[in-house]
Amino acid sequence: MTDAEWAVVRPLLPVPGWMRGRGGQPEAYCHRAILDAVRYLVDNGIKWRAMPADFPPWDRVYAFFRRWRDHGLVVEFHDRLRSRVREREGRDTEPTAAVIDSQSVKADAVVGADSRGFDGGKLINGWKRHLVVDTLGLLPGVMVAAADVGDRTAAKVLLGQVADARHRLELVWADGGYTGSLAGHCLAVLALVLQVVKRSDDRRGFVVLPKRWIVERTNAWLTHTRRLARDYERRTTSAEAIVYWSMTLLMTRRLAWPHPSRA
């Protein structure tokens, strides 16, 4: 991280338990060095054991990653950054509208056969990332599942999680893969309006569809980080954590840049 990024990140970091009198031991390494190591791994797609010597030992970095994953700290950190970006853009901290979509990704050989699946539509053997993004392309929620899990099935779970955490969410746009009983479920159970944006049958070639392009752009952002070009994680929770870490890279860089209106 640059000094400008660290100035943004430092006050938003979750406070360790030992600093709040809840026990535990202080970190053995500087938080900035640990964060840089995790960001380097996500951005460059290296193996944990290939961590450069300039960073803390790989097992200490992985222990940090695992602790933040299991205790929800990476989500907490991500959400604080997302709120700050939305405020900077003149938006409320929580969105009222979002877009949902999925992306099938090939799984590496380390991913067990019992957790992966085959997406017959995309002909991909691996996992599927289900994303809910706001109108800025930022991430209120993500769910990683086997590629053979249907979009509507995963959407019920993911939208339920997002609706519980984001009480202001009212409208969700989706593509034709989310038709059927899902709209009724969202309205009756989650108090959400699911609006399907369909492609016109008389249009040929590439067409930018209203609202749906936002989530496609987020998918492109994620694949810029090499760790997400394939799925290398052995657990879906780790894959979800990597997605959140990838978005923190994007948001810290954005917050460190001078705002156009203030330049």
Rank of each mutant, 00 (worst) to 15 (best):
K128Y: 00
K128V: 01
R129H: 03
R129I: 00
R129Q: 01
L131I: 01
L131C: 02
V132E: 08
V133E: 04
D134T: 03
T135P: 01
L136E: 10
L136A: 10
G137S: 06
L138A: 05
L139N: 00
L139P: 01
P140M: 05
G141E: 13
G141H: 10
G141R: 00
V142E: 06
V142F: 11
M143V: 06
V144I: 14
V144P: 13
V144K: 12
A145E: 07
A145T: 15
V149E: 07
G150K: 11
G150F: 00
G150A: 08
D151L: 01
R152C: 04
R152M: 02
T153W: 05
T153F: 00
A154V: 05
A154S: 14
A155Y: 02
A155F: 03
K156T: 14
K156P: 13
L158H: 04
L158A: 04
L159F: 01
Q161L: 13
A163G: 02
A163T: 07
D164A: 05
A165P: 09
A165T: 08
A165C: 06
H167T: 07
H167Y: 08
L169M: 10
L169V: 09
L169F: 11
E170Q: 12
E170T: 10
V172Y: 01
A174Y: 01
D175W: 00
D175G: 07
G176W: 00
G176L: 05
G176A: 07
Y178E: 10
Y178N: 09
T179I: 06
G180N: 11
G180H: 10
L182C: 04
H185V: 07
L187Q: 15
A188G: 02
V189C: 02
L190Y: 08
L190D: 12
L190M: 12
L192Y: 11
Q195P: 05
V196N: 07
K198P: 01
K198C: 13
R199S: 06
R199L: 08
S200D: 15
D201A: 14
D201C: 07
D202L: 06
R203Q: 15
R203Y: 13
R204M: 09
R204T: 14
G205D: 13
F206D: 05
F206L: 09
V207G: 03
V207H: 13
V208A: 08
V208Q: 12
L209V: 04
P210Y: 11
W213C: 07
I214E: 06
I214Y: 12
E216F: 01
E216H: 00
E216D: 02
T218N: 07
N219R: 05
N219H: 15
W221H: 11
W221M: 11
T223F: 00
T225M: 09
T225R: 13
L228S: 09
L228C: 01
R230D: 09
R230N: 12
Y232C: 15
Y232P: 08
R235W: 14
R235M: 13
S238G: 07
S238W: 11
S238C: 14
A239V: 10
A239P: 10
E240V: 11
A241D: 04
A241W: 14
A241S: 14
I242E: 04
Y244V: 03
Y244A: 12
Y244N: 06
W245E: 04
W245V: 08
W245H: 06
S246A: 15
S246Q: 08
M247E: 14
M247V: 14
M247L: 15
T248K: 05
